[in-house]
Design a protein around this nucleic acid. Structure first.
Lengths: 219, 219
DNA sequence: CGAAACATTGAGCCGCGTCAAAACGTGTGG
DNA sequence: CCACACGTTTTGACGCGGCTCAATGTTTCG
């Protein structure tokens, strides 16, 4: 569990005391935009999607959380985005009060969470570039490369890459429609850069071609 | 100066010791993407633009910094974006080494910077929604409202709102072309929501109409 | 086996980008 | 003070790419 990576044994057991375990079924909502921030979470298995919605139903997915990622980094007193399970999800839950107390006692813990926050900020800024300036195929290529790189960091399979989220999720993440996402997958497949054994699995065949298409802006 | 807002006198004088003042001419570059992170900055007057560039020259502006804002929040060891002065800029500069040392001695300082980082993350995520899901007029409306709100927070004029940045900058921030930005200004003007005494000045006439157009996603 | 959900493919249209020109504002020099 | 030139913004005309609407294909589950 990645929050604890910087902690000594004594600190770990303290963290363990205030932690409770929780399971989410596929598509179960964990928190909703605007909910008061009572608990924060650390993902141990599965994938979460973070999203913001407009009054008229339009949705923007701001990120996907992988095992080891932390939920609640951006927020001060209310959740700024909705978090839902994509597949089956396992996570640890902490009361923010107790977590804050623990952070005061163990500065390493605080530093670690802040390092997470900085990393999330860098990623959000890269996403701004992707959303604002890339064409659909470029968006998809950079999405696949970034996800593959993160999968590797999180000790998951980086090359036959698993895509547990739906095409709709990918579309709402990249600012496209599902049709355009699907067509972009087809283009990447037809140019031999990827293979699609099934819709939730991608093989990245020609990494350097993908990087060229993506503009190598994948940190 | 906003970094110091939470500091006692003794702490302030310590901060003052490690601080050096600096001035930037219009369009002068402060740091470039990839530069090693030796110094961080706190803006005291003027406006900075943060941007990321693609190999082919496409550019995404990830944010505008106002007086009181801090530069270097997201970065670990290199700058992840380019920072340039928009008009004439005045800022305070800190060696990251010394700043880190000071943060260890005064936890309040550290907490304050981390609060800045969280706030920047929330803003970056709102930007993702704006970039991914809003139509041009909606983008512009939400940009104007957000800038006006921030101007108010930073004790600047919120309603006859000053736009020191060029149309190109606004376009690169909103993921549009300058022509579309200009046309969107015209639409907002023709529907009576804003007035444009000159290109760098906007009067927000009908706030609630603007909010409706923007989707009220401006926290 | 049928139904439902999801993904892919197709056809047509509209909006934004592209290219081009005009208007505006500013500063410089005659 | 005017004339001119330059940069920026605005407006116009047009084409293309991605969205919309619709149909087909595929997989999963009851």
């Amino acid at each position: 569990m990645a929050v604890c990576a910087a902690l000594a044994d004594e600190e770990l057991s303290e963290l363990d005391k205030i932690m409770t375990s929780r399971h989410l079924a596929p598509n179960e909502m964990l928190v909703s935009e605007g909910d008061p921030l009572h608990r924060t979470y650390s993902l141990t298995a599965g994938m979460l999607r973070l999203s913001i919605a407009l009054p008229d139903g339009r949705r923007q997915i701001t990120g996907f959380l992988l095992p080891g990622d932390y939920l609640g980094l951006a927020d001060e007193d209310v959740h700024s985005s909705t978090a839902e399970a994509i597949g089956s999800v396992q996570l640890c839950s902490f009361s923010t009060r107790e977590m804050h107390a623990l952070m005061e006692r163990y500065p390493k813990l605080k530093d670690r969470l802040h390092s997470f926050t900085r990393s999330a900020l860098r990623q959000a800024r890269d996403n701004q570039m992707i959303l604002g300036r890339l064409a659909p195929v470029e968006k998809l290529a950079s999405f696949l490369l970034a996800l593959s790189a993160r999968a590797a960091e999180h000790k998951l399979s980086a090359n036959p890459l698993s895509l547990p989220m739906s095409r709709t999720d990918i579309a709402d993440y990249l600012g496209l429609t599902i049709e355009t996402v699907s067509r972009s997958f087809t283009k990447l497949r037809n140019t031999g850069m990827i293979r699609l054994p099934d819709p939730q699995t991608v093989e990245l065949i020609d990494m350097s071609a993908l990087e060229a298409v993506a503009g190598i802006n994948v940190h």
